[in-house]
Amino acid sequence: MPANRPTTGLERARRRRERRTLIAIVGALILVGVAVTYAAAYVTGLAPGSKPPAPPASCVRTTPPPAPQSLFTLNVYNASKDQGVAKRTAAALRSRDFTVGAVSNDPYGEQLDGVGELRFGAAGAAYAKQYVLPLFPGATLQQDGRTGTSVDVVLGGDAPSVSEGTPTPTQTLPADCAQYE
């Protein structure tokens, strides 16, 4: 075909179709390439929004939840004839991760013969029943007008001795787990 030959409308339409087809094929190939690259980056963990690989089970550090005993304060009072009961009981409660406030003789000056009393306000009722009463079974529950979460343990003559708790063990991880910290 001579170069200067006039083109007909059909030939121009055919060339436009070929050009559009070529553009569509190149566009589709580019999209496939981008998708494959993103998928490879996602699998290797380099894509934005992808999660890092999970550490093996031997490298997961388990931290105990905060002790619920630290959410309220225990005041320990002696209402028995024995001396030093409140001090010994307070030390044992501290070793069990309780937050201990006042340690003294009963501020009401009562002498109790039974196990004792647990005094608390409306906000501390759940703490007294769930965490303190199991340590002093048989103690009388007495709700007073206080607004805070503190609980008073008033020890009577038959109060059980509370044993000291064991400290929470620390966890060491294997040396090959350093990359996950």
Rank of each mutant, 00 (worst) to 15 (best):
R16A: 03
R15C: 07
F98R: 08
A13N: 13
V32R: 06
L71A: 11
Q83F: 05
Q143R: 14
Y127Q: 02
A128C: 14
S95Q: 12
P6M: 11
G33F: 07
L74C: 03
D158P: 10
Q142T: 06
A40Y: 08
F72E: 02
F72R: 02
A139T: 04
R88L: 11
D144W: 15
T140K: 15
G145N: 15
Q69N: 10
P134H: 13
E11K: 02
F98G: 01
F136R: 07
P52G: 00
A35N: 01
L133C: 12
C177Y: 07
A126F: 09
P107T: 07
F98Q: 09
R61D: 04
G121S: 05
D97W: 11
T170L: 03
G157I: 03
D82P: 02
T168H: 14
V162T: 08
F98N: 06
Q111F: 13
Q69L: 04
P56D: 10
A24T: 14
T8P: 00
V26M: 09
T89G: 07
A67D: 14
E18Y: 01
V162Y: 04
G145H: 02
Q111H: 12
T62C: 04
E164G: 08
S150W: 12
R12V: 10
L112Q: 01
Q69S: 09
G157D: 12
P174G: 09
G84R: 11
A125W: 02
A54P: 05
C59K: 11
S80R: 09
P169C: 01
S163I: 00
Q69I: 11
V151E: 07
T172F: 03
T44C: 03
R119T: 12
R17P: 05
Y127K: 05
G148Y: 10
L22Q: 15
R12S: 06
M1W: 09
S58G: 00
L46D: 11
T89N: 02
A86P: 06
A24V: 05
G165M: 05
V43E: 06
L118C: 01
A40C: 10
L135H: 07
Y108P: 03
R19N: 03
P6G: 04
Y38G: 05
E181S: 01
P64G: 03
S70A: 15
P66C: 08
P167T: 14
P2K: 14
G156Q: 00
V162M: 14
S163G: 13
T62K: 11
